[in-house]
């Protein structure tokens, strides 16, 4: 089984994140960039499947040159190789266009299974998995908190607001995962050393048969009009509980008409 894992490099959600004032895109140059956290769970799930069933795990990233750091980090966990789609024309791409690029790259790889995080911590848009599946005409099992593979048959538990759904499909398919699905491994020293030598193929838009005008700002289907910093919340009244902290809390609730 050939498994392609989608990995996105994102600005660290634990640090200050900004949009650029010149073109309204995510400021990646001044940010501390990391692997999208949810993608580490996708990598882990792929590696566990490989350990149980054999096959090959390939990392796929669309992003600027500096995303190479995150690709090497991903490889240090254990995947076999990586594909990096990098092209200046991609800057400013919307989700619809990005899904076109990812779908083309996945099709070229000939994956049996695509695993990705349910969402990224920067956009949190959550639409890419179904957009890709729509383009490829394959099953999308999204929002998995558990994945079971039996031959070509896949079963997930899909987290819902009410509980969960058991959903099945056959390969080829795409599975998106939440962070409840496993505990990702830490790269070992050996893994980090090995990652430096693993095959990393770089592709341009041309290699995927996509014209520059279909992506980036020219191909964007939505546009940011303006953005601004939201004023930070101000700290209010802070009291010591003493003996009547609970009563004071309820007094506050009453003053705000919550009780």
């Amino acid at each position: 089984m050939k498994i392609v894992v989608l990995v996105k490099q994102v600005p660290d959600s634990g640090a200050d994140r900004n949009l650029r004032s010149d073109d309204n895109t995510v400021d990646r140059a001044s940010a501390s960039n990391v692997i999208n956290e949810m993608d580490e769970y996708a990598i882990e799930e792929a590696l566990r499947l490989q350990e149980a069933h054999g096959g090959e795990v390939v990392i796929l990233t669309v992003g600027p040159d500096r995303a190479t750091e995150s690709i090497r980090k991903a490889l240090s966990m254990g995947p076999d190789s990586a594909v990096h789609v990098v092209d200046d024309a991609l800057h400013g791409s919307c989700a619809v266009a990005t899904s076109k690029v990812l779908a083309a790259a996945i099709a070229q790889q000939g994956a049996d299974l695509v695993i990705c995080g349910a969402e990224s911590t920067d956009g949190r848009v959550q639409v890419l998995p179904h957009m890709i599946a729509e383009r490829l005409g394959i099953a999308a099992l999204t929002g998995a908190r558990k994945l079971t593979v039996d031959g070509t048959s896949l079963t997930i538990e899909r987290q819902t607001d009410e509980g969960y759904e058991v959903v099945t499909a056959s390969t080829p398919a795409l599975v998106s995962v939440w962070d409840t699905i496993n505990d990702p491994r830490y790269p070992s020293f050996k893994g980090i050393m090995a990652a430096k030598k693993k095959p990393l193929q770089t592709l341009s838009l041309g290699d995927l048969g996509i014209a520059a005008g279909e992506v980036g700002f020219d191909g964007a289907t939505s546009t940011v009009v303006e953005h601004s910093k939201r004023p930070p919340r101000q700290a209010g009244n802070k009291i010591d509980a003493g003996d009547d902290g609970g009563s004071k809390l309820v007094e506050y609730l009453a003053s705000e008409k919550f009780v």
Binding site: N24, T223, R230
Partner: peptide, 9 residues
Amino acid sequence: STIVKSKVS
């Protein structure tokens, strides 16, 4: 932290 205004183009 950030407010964005955007539209479908």
